[in-house]
Computed example of a mutant assay.
Amino acid sequence: MEATTSLPPVISSNNLVEQDPGSDSLFRASSFPSGSSDQRWRRRTSSLLARPTRQKSFGREVGHAAAETYLITGLSFKLLSYLGVGYRWITRLFSLVLYAMFLLPGFLQVGFCYFFSSHVHRSIVYGDRPRNRYKAWGSLLGLQLAERDIIVASIDYRNFPQGTISDMVDDISQGISYVCNNVVEFGGDPNKIYLMGQSAGAHISACALLQQAVKESSGDGISWSVSQIRAYFGLSGGYNLLKLVDHFHGRGLYRSVFLSIMEGEKSLKHFSPEIIAQSPGLHNAVPLLPHFVLFHGTSDYSIPSNESITFADTLRKAGARAELILYNGKTHTDLFLQDPLRGGKDELFDYVVTFIHSDDKEALASDAMASPRRRFVPEILLRLAREVSPF
């Protein structure tokens, strides 16, 4: 770290498919080792990305959860009106229920930490639009990175039918702006921010990053700078929508619904990072881009690993720094759910932490001595979940 009072923040946006609900507002999970007085001061005073306020009472949290449940229920019925009755999505919904049941022991533990840990600051308001609030994916990542003294902000965006793709990209960009402009108040370094997204979150955050780079290189007014992002981590992302329309249709996300989310067929190329990276308008923006690291499992049937392979190749041809890491036999959710819930050694997690701490010898030494991550779910349940996974 460049200053002892700064910690590197990670912005995370995570979703499995575009229409699934995503993580809520900004999420703070941080823990600090006992040691210097400065570190103890940070433990007492830091609350990520929100000015210090009194934690909401449990009653208010319950009321908030009830209101969100009502909102999501209404949106779900609206979504059903788009989907109609179809064999593919009904069978996948049934598989999803079984999948969640097998992983429930882990979800309950993570949920308890999320709602009751003093290191988590919930329901931070940013932007001027309501968002779906679902934090499970970001909570698991945040709690585990927090153990390595990394601040995590989990950004939410409106999901279909509450919003379409341009709304989603705008929401993510507003969230990144909030982080860049406020993180210094809570022990973070505004020039050492890392952007991470999984699945739809990887796609949307890549769109936001590339669009911001084009705007910045053109001299347009901006509220955050791409230069503040040290690296982009994309997990199991889809980066060329033109190639994915038929693939998603075959898996139950029907073409008509997908095109409604993406604002029509003509908009597909405008929200495809791979195509944006080939456009002449990106030429002047390439020097602004951070290091791209793309992760993908070779047994990912939700979004084929070729999406990351071709996007990494396209970025390199455009002159950007891009790295591709493939995990043999890993599925769409192995990297982000089953492996973290399994505990112990996790190659992807270790890579991300080492990358973030690469210029901090003290942090690297501490990482080398860190205890193995604990298991959340018995192995038998993880294997069963993998067998029934709709992803």
Rank of each mutant, 00 (worst) to 15 (best):
G319M: 04
I11E: 04
Y70K: 12
V17A: 10
E274C: 02
L244M: 09
D38P: 13
T91A: 05
S12D: 10
M1P: 09
L282H: 00
G201E: 08
C180G: 05
D246T: 02
Q162S: 11
T354F: 06
G221W: 13
K56L: 05
H203F: 00
A3F: 03
L288M: 08
I72M: 08
I261M: 10
I150A: 00
T333I: 14
V85S: 02
Y351I: 01
C180K: 02
C207V: 04
V226H: 00
P33Q: 15
S47L: 08
Y87Q: 13
L140G: 00
H203K: 07
H203A: 03
I172K: 03
F107V: 04
L259S: 10
S123Q: 13
I309Y: 14
I155K: 02
S366G: 09
A50M: 08
R54V: 13
S23Y: 10
S256T: 10
G201W: 05
A285I: 02
R88P: 02
N159Q: 09
G142P: 02
E265H: 12
Y157P: 00
G86R: 11
C207D: 05
E216A: 00
C113D: 15
E379Y: 09
L382P: 03
D189T: 08
S302E: 11
K192H: 14
L103T: 03
T53V: 12
A213D: 02
V169R: 03
V184W: 13
D149V: 01
A100L: 15
G234R: 12
N181R: 05
Q278I: 11
A67R: 10
N191T: 13
I124Q: 05
I176L: 05
S223C: 00
L335S: 10
L195Y: 13
S177Y: 04
I356F: 12
L140W: 03
Y126T: 03
S34I: 01
I124M: 03
P280D: 07
R386S: 10
K135R: 12
Q338E: 09
V286G: 12
R251F: 04
G197S: 11
A363V: 11
T53I: 08
T45N: 06
P190N: 09
L49A: 04
V17K: 08
A65N: 01
V245W: 00
T310H: 11
H357Q: 11
R321N: 02
R373N: 13
P378I: 13
G329S: 13
L141E: 12
L341M: 14
Q228F: 01
D339A: 13
L83Y: 03
L235W: 04
V125C: 04
K266W: 06
E263Y: 10
L242P: 03
A29E: 11
F336R: 13
L384F: 12
L26F: 00
A231S: 07
L324T: 07
F58I: 14
R54P: 07
F94L: 09
S13F: 09
G329W: 01
G142K: 01
A285E: 06
N15S: 04
P9K: 08
I229W: 08
P9L: 15
G264V: 07
R375N: 15
Y301T: 15
A277V: 02
D350G: 06
A153M: 14
I356Q: 11
E265N: 05
F258A: 07
T53F: 15
L282I: 15
